[in-house]
Design a protein around this nucleic acid. Sequence first.
DNA 1: CTGAAAGCGCTTACAG
DNA 2: CTGAAAGCGCTTACAG
Lengths: 330, 330
Amino acid sequence: VTIDTVAEKAAVSVATVSRVLNNDPHVGAKYRRRVQQAVAELGYRPNRLARGLRRQRSQSIAAVVSDIENPHFAEMVRAVEDLASAAGYRLIVDNTDESPDKQRRYLQALADERVTGLILSPTDPNAGEISMLLDLDIPVVAFDRQVSDPRADAVVADNTRATAMAVRLLIGAGHRDIALVAGRLDTQTGAERVDGYQMAMREAGLAPRIVDGDFRIVGGQEATDALLRDHTPPSALIVSNNLMTIGALRVIRDSGIKVPSQLALVAVDDPFWAEFVAPPLTTVAQPVRRMAEDAVALLLERVSGARTIPRRSVHPFELRIRSSCGTRPA
Amino acid sequence: VTIDTVAEKAAVSVATVSRVLNNDPHVGAKYRRRVQQAVAELGYRPNRLARGLRRQRSQSIAAVVSDIENPHFAEMVRAVEDLASAAGYRLIVDNTDESPDKQRRYLQALADERVTGLILSPTDPNAGEISMLLDLDIPVVAFDRQVSDPRADAVVADNTRATAMAVRLLIGAGHRDIALVAGRLDTQTGAERVDGYQMAMREAGLAPRIVDGDFRIVGGQEATDALLRDHTPPSALIVSNNLMTIGALRVIRDSGIKVPSQLALVAVDDPFWAEFVAPPLTTVAQPVRRMAEDAVALLLERVSGARTIPRRSVHPFELRIRSSCGTRPA
DNA sequence: CTGAAAGCGCTTACAG
DNA sequence: CTGAAAGCGCTTACAG
């Protein structure tokens, strides 16, 4: 049952059926009713492939993230899907694994299928495919990290302030030797978190102490291990994302070191398990759902043409004090 | 740049270009080379919408799950995406929230876009849309829970044995009052986990003690709270999925009850945070990645026509003894 | 082995 | 306001 069947049954042209289906106001009430009835009786559903080909746009949006298993992105994707499907769009998910090559292939595929728009947590912010998509009038919203093409919108968190907040909290609790497990300095997020840390440390006249953990579980584990094996281990630790925190917790547990008495801990990111680990983690949390909602809103503004100038929105982190930092909630 | 551009440049017909693109062997080597060169020089990429319309099949597969934020499904979706994209398919993700109505709408949308196949963790296993998809020759692989249409394939875990294993472990550790926080008896997974529990308890001459937790965090919290507030609280607890376990842990932590000395705990599902909570959780784990790989393999067998008879594959759970059960690893 | 042509199911100028 | 017709970019019988 295609649009022709409906047209025949309603005794109108396919053009009229199409207009009714797309809520074109210039259709006579009589015709509209006839079409609606035929649609209902036949159980007609428009073929999205045909519509997409004709419009040169598939009714879908994409979330391109490094790894959906990371609770940060799972939360983001969940929110995006909710809003996208409410707006009539289908959701495509791509995992880049932080590989520029995978990102390249996925962005190319999104162009090939004429996606309506995408939310991209970029692995390679300079990729030519980003510009290619924008050239095709496919809006791109950068998430977490910005991209170099100035036509893209962006939704980011204030990473610099995040680690600075963590440092100040620990200084307030009396710590002076505060180390940072950093992640991927070649990413904006990673670099900004280091910046905030260094700034706050210097401001307090303290020496920064940074180990790289690559934003991954194993990296966090090795970095923490290196710090704790040092003959002068730090008294406090900031871990700059949730995956590295898992690695850090593994080392801490295996080494028998007591948190927070022997080592105070503050983690960036607030995954749902943060309050159930031992001890419950003090975190600086990104408002992930709000950021995702913001990203979809920016995307839909572009799609509808309601806005044409690029927008960048910066969300503040939020301090969630639990017990791992050794400071009690007020 | 379309297929016509390529045909012109290579001085062949579009039919020949199409054949080369689709690896039709009946193309002369000379023609093939000319087409390939033109494709490369023009940077031509086939329009997937057009191809989809013509073939009546979009080159994408879908994962329909209750909630991608549940680490169980995040892991499943991650694996499915890896394999699907390696096979040239795009991945669509739908969250049903355990709502039959949402499931209905999503399955309908998948039909509307002529998806190549789907992996479905069904909320409503009897939904007519499942049969509609199968009627359209769109293969459906049921995941976790089976569906009633016998034409669908299925990949499930041996839930009955899972809880039975947990019960036997706790009995072996000397427990006799072992309660179960159950989830949604109207789902196959939930019901089977209860069955296994009851069977193993009866087998040992013990009285079952079951509270419903709805498979959700809040439900697990309320169920555990009810059990612990009882004037004869159980000495051991089995929680039948990872979300309810989070709820249970919250109550346990707030009540100050010591695990495993005052309450032994075994959880079904083995999310990555299971070994970092306090105390590390003893779990019965589903081989989620393997199950997902299996599901994609079954799907692709259907797509290629390599298999036409339905297959159901049952994966065993695996016991991961940590400290929450009060039994030390061997 | 190769090409001309039909057709997948829509939308949208264009004409009336 | 409504319809006839072109066309989106492919694939695939069909004929040669």
